[in-house]
Design a protein around this nucleic acid. Sequence first.
DNA 1: TATTGTTATACTCTATAACTATA
DNA 2: TATAGTTATAGAGTATAACAATA
Lengths: 171, 171
Amino acid sequence: MSPVTGPTLPPLVPGAADASSAPEALDMRHLQSLLGYNARRAALHIIEGFMQRMGEFGLRTVDFSVMSVICHNPGVTSRQLCAALNLRPPNLVGLVQALHARGLLARQPHPTDGRALGLHATAQGMALMRQAEQAATQLEIDRSAQLSAKERQTLIELLQRVYLPARKPPF
Amino acid sequence: MSPVTGPTLPPLVPGAADASSAPEALDMRHLQSLLGYNARRAALHIIEGFMQRMGEFGLRTVDFSVMSVICHNPGVTSRQLCAALNLRPPNLVGLVQALHARGLLARQPHPTDGRALGLHATAQGMALMRQAEQAATQLEIDRSAQLSAKERQTLIELLQRVYLPARKPPF
DNA sequence: TATTGTTATACTCTATAACTATA
DNA sequence: TATAGTTATAGAGTATAACAATA
């Protein structure tokens, strides 16, 4: 059982592998056969570098996402942001307040709904995000340098088909 | 700017999009061009169902990972588990204690290192994990039903090339 | 009655420093 | 001196319930 090289998974019985004989390399094949495990490990690998890089702009991952959506969708409401980014409204309040306090976004009354507030990036917020988005794109390329541009695109498309609702064929 | 279908990203200036004209659909193209964003969203989508399903076995995601590695690597130490799963030792203590209290694993003195404890799954733990691993595999297939078996395999391989250290060609 | 934004709060997950026993 | 396991604890992230203002 030791020199297994094929895709066969080890049997789930004692003695199938012995950690004391090779303490430095564990058999991780079953976990590595699971999509969720691999997706989580890969996401954490990318985001680890992402957080470092965005820290230079004073942004956490979620700050970047929120600012990016606001920049590309002027007047978006908190509720829309929550739906698009899978956030809970109470967790967005302090986040938006902090970005507003830094002068990165402004809140204007919604044109048709008196309850809502439209979120707009300020000129300063726009300038920051232009830099941040460029840095983010470059960082991701560096962090996934093992992939070609074509492979990276394939990976993104497959990931989107996992979590995005299926769309009609004629796009 | 409205009927854009190509890969061109919207300019990062006000007026590029207007949320009030299409309040139900936001422009998410920039975030969706980022690998980290897509990997995180896909991972959360899979793991959401994973947690529900594993809850029936009384296991959280991390419990499943730990038990799985122990089952396939009898005698593995806590330190090895931490390195393999990117966990911090203090966070593993209570986790292992809980699994031990449930009779799912046993801790035996390490044969060569008096400081370490070898972790072994009990018969009960083995039986539980046999069911859990089967359920996990099936759940992932269900949750990624938009992908063919071949596409799912391609996705896993691309993800592993992102987060696993590169290996020598003649593997 | 339903929804937006908000407050307060609790729960989980994760991370760090420091201790002990052994190598 | 370095490492394995542990303790205590702090911080971040995430979740729910409930409220006022508006639809």
